[in-house]
Nucleic acid binder design. Structure first.
Lengths: 222, 222
DNA sequence: AATGCCATTATTGTCGACAATATTGCGAAA
DNA sequence: TTTCGCAATATTGTCGACAATAATGGCATT
């Protein structure tokens, strides 16, 4: 299966994608139980395909399963968010380092033009596509690492969990202009083929994002 | 399921562990096909449990599956080893950083005594337990990070793949005394609660190990 | 009234059979 | 002879039913 254009070929794939979507987007609430029989009825498939879909969700760390008891959607806590961002900082920092070495000149040019279009968006005050743009930016660098292990861990593992947090905490993400400057310097480092700097900047960028999220989390708790 | 003391409760668990063992230890060769029917006969279980076991192996990146075609044990190449070690360097560096903050004083004391016992082993010229000792060292630091995502990625993901490589390349691992000194300085940084240094040293340590493996790989190719 | 035990019930784990898809090998046409 | 297409075969995907295990509730005992 391709990592980016995930296309569902089997019935189990579709159920998996559907369930993942429902969980990440909050249709199915955290800590809720996933009954195999019930889901089988809901999606009009056999219990076997639901089972397989659930197993895949387990490997994404989106649900947890106990033998002979059942599967529950993970419960999100502040510690979970922190630990997730620690892993993300580590992996995506390495991705930036590798991207600086492994991206082609064309890919870097594309990345720069993406950045330019983001600048336009920011200046026009349009905030709607901001998150999508941010995701696009990070995706390109991750893919630019050309490291399959890294790519799959980030794109089919961590990123869905992070999206789930974002939806759950109801944050479309502020920090637009400052984040843009950070993106800009990362691209600069990559186009200079300076992997070490790219890694440092990417890690800082993610750390700032995390701090920002935690701040919001505290506000929300009050 | 506990991450360290993995105990098989279900039939599918046992089959999974058995298959993983057979693959990692080379009983089942890389790039060989995993026929569901054949394995079901071999282990005297139903095809469903074999299927589930194979799916779990897929998530460990030990086998690859294509829809309607089947599953094959991954083929190991030099690039794969490099990309694996890049991920390991990144994650385990972060683990060391976190361990410096999150390990208890008792755990650090245990780590130091482990190091002392390793010194004894090295001085006595005994090389047999060297690899086990090395694994034990790294495990403690990984667990010391107290980050569940990090722990599961490393211990139930990457480490089995690395073991597979080691077995496949037939290297019990040299570099005993130098590696010991590196371990020593890492422990020093951790007991000083210096996370930043611990991360740098761990990353260097893993990079050296990788360079050493690559050298062996080239020698073998000649 | 509270607690511990046992039967009941519901849910998950396992199985064998059938359906759908990919591979293989044969034969026909260029 | 080579290549294309089709039929035969083998393997995977899906299904419903049964077995095993855990959660539930009532009953008896203290």
């Amino acid at each position: 299966m391709n990592l980016v254009t995930e296309q569902a070929v089997t019935s189990s794939d579709k159920t998996f994608f559907q369930l993942r979507k429902d969980i990440v987007e909050g249709q199915i609430l955290p800590a809720s139980k996933l009954s195999e029989a019930e889901l089988a009825k809901r999606y009009t498939v056999s219990r076997a395909v639901v089972r397989e879909a659930i197993n895949r969700l387990v490997t994404c760390h989106l649900v947890e399963r106990r033998a002979n008891v059942g599967a529950r959607v993970v419960a999100l806590g502040p510690e979970g968010l922190v630990s997730l961002y620690q892993v993300r900082e580590s992996l995506e920092g390495m991705a930036a380092r590798l991207a600086a070495v492994n991206m082609s000149d064309d890919e870097i040019a594309d990345l720069q033009s993406l950045l330019a279009s983001h600048l336009q968006t920011v200046q026009s005050g349009d905030t709607y596509y901001q998150e999508a743009g941010d995701v696009d930016f990070h995706y390109r660098i991750i893919l630019g690492s050309k490291n399959d292990h890294l790519i799959s861990m980030l794109l089919e593992g961590i990123y869905h969990l992070i999206r789930m947090y974002r939806v759950q905490l109801g944050m479309a993400g502020p920090r637009v202009t400052t984040a843009f400057d950070e993106h800009k310097s990362i691209v600069q480092a990559i186009s200079n083929r300076d992997g070490e700097l790219a890694e440092i900047l990417m890690r800082r960028h993610i750390l700032y994002t995390r701090n920002n999220l935690e701040k919001k989390l505290v506000q929300q708790a009050v």
